[in-house]
Amino acid sequence: MPPQFQQNKPIYLQVMDQLIQEIVSRQRKPGEKLPSVRELAIATSVNPNTIQRVYRELEQRHITETKRGQGTFVTEDRALITTIREELKQQYVNDFVHDMEALGFSKQEIIASIQEGETK
C-alpha cells in the first residue's frame, strides 16, 4: 500500500521528510543508491514530476548526489547527516516540550515522566 499523505502539506515535502528520516536513521546508508524517479513514483503512487522535485530539493541540500547515467545516491558526507539528525532531534524535542507546556506540565514533570516511561 502506498503511504497516506497529509491533505494540507505539499506531497513533495512529505516524500522528502520520509526519505530524510530513512537516511538519518541509517535505513538508507551513506553512498547507497536511491530508487529511480519512476520506481519511487510507482511505489508511492505519486506523480513522477513531484518525485523529480523531491530529488532536486534533496540535491540542493547536498543530502543526495546525482551521478550522470548512474542515478541518485545518498551523500557520503557523514558529518552532514549527523547535523541533519541533530536538527531533527531538536525540532521534535521543541515541538514535544511546547505541546506539553501547553498542557501545563513543567520541564521537571516532563523529564520525570520520560524517565518513568523508560523504566517500565
Binding site: Q7, K9, N47, T50
Partner: peptide
C-alpha cells in the same frame, strides 16, 4: 497524488486552474 494541476469548472465556465502542490501549501 498523481496530479500536477486541477482545472475547476462550474456552469460551463472554467473558474480556476491551479497547481495541486501550490494549493496544498495553504
Amino acid at each position: 497524488t498523481i496530479l500536477d494541476e486541477v482545472i475547476v469548472m462550474r456552469d460551463g465556465h472554467v473558474i480556476a486552474q491551479e497547481e495541486v502542490e501550490t494549493i496544498r501549501e495553504g
